[in-house]
Amino acid sequence: MNIAVLLKQVPDTTAKIIISEGKVDENSVSKWSMSPYDEYALESGLQMKDANNGLLIAITCGPDRSKKMLTDAAAVGADTLIHISDEGVKDSTHTQQLLAAVIKKFDANVILCGKQAADTNGGSTGPGVAEILDAACVTLVSEVSFTDGKYITMRPSNNGTEKVSVDGISVFAFDKGTTELRRPNVRGIMMAKKKAIESMTSTDLGVDLSSSNVTLDSQTPPPEKAAGQKFDGAEHVPTVVSKLRNEANVI
């Protein structure tokens, strides 16, 4: 079983984002990490690999810095590491085409990814890749296993949880999963260091990135939080309760 896990390196959730001249200043990001939902996808992929004697292919499309994340994935058990250069990528459909090309190249049976990346929150990668591959796609899953030739997955429904079975090539986009990504150990780290990262470009993959009808015009930081209000003394309790109920809508 070939398991493809799609990963994206994003600014760590603790990192401060600075916007300069209408764009996120990537040089100001002090720490880059694997996108949290991708971590759940990776953990599920590792479990599926262990249970089915599979091969786990970790794939990312991004700048050179994102190779570090592939080494981190190798430290917990990814077998094959593929870095696709994001040079020339203009929109998310380009990324999806590049990812799909690699997935085909490795004859992946199942594709796992996060439901959205923690930086752009686009949410289009899983469904987009599935569309190109003509594969089934289940989103917002919390776990996936392979039993009797079918993938069994859990996802939320209107009134609880639904269990979905899929066969054939399938894409699963993870929400918060049931198991946190395992911690690496020294042995894994030492093996990861020796593992080669295969780099590919759009030309290598035969993907045409010339046309795009999307342009990112500008990025702006969220508005500053308004100053809090302070009340001193028991006589203000009714006012505070009324504000919490009617303005903040928390009670």
Binding site: T14, K16, K68, K193
Partner: peptide, 21 residues
């Protein structure tokens, strides 16, 4: 402006001298 995520204090960026491993 230099920002700091948690990161233990490393004013001279001494940890950049460490190997990746």
């Amino acid at each position: 402006m230099i920002t700091m995520a948690y990161e233990a204090l490393d004013f001279y960026d001494v940890d950049s001298l460490l190997s990746e491993e």
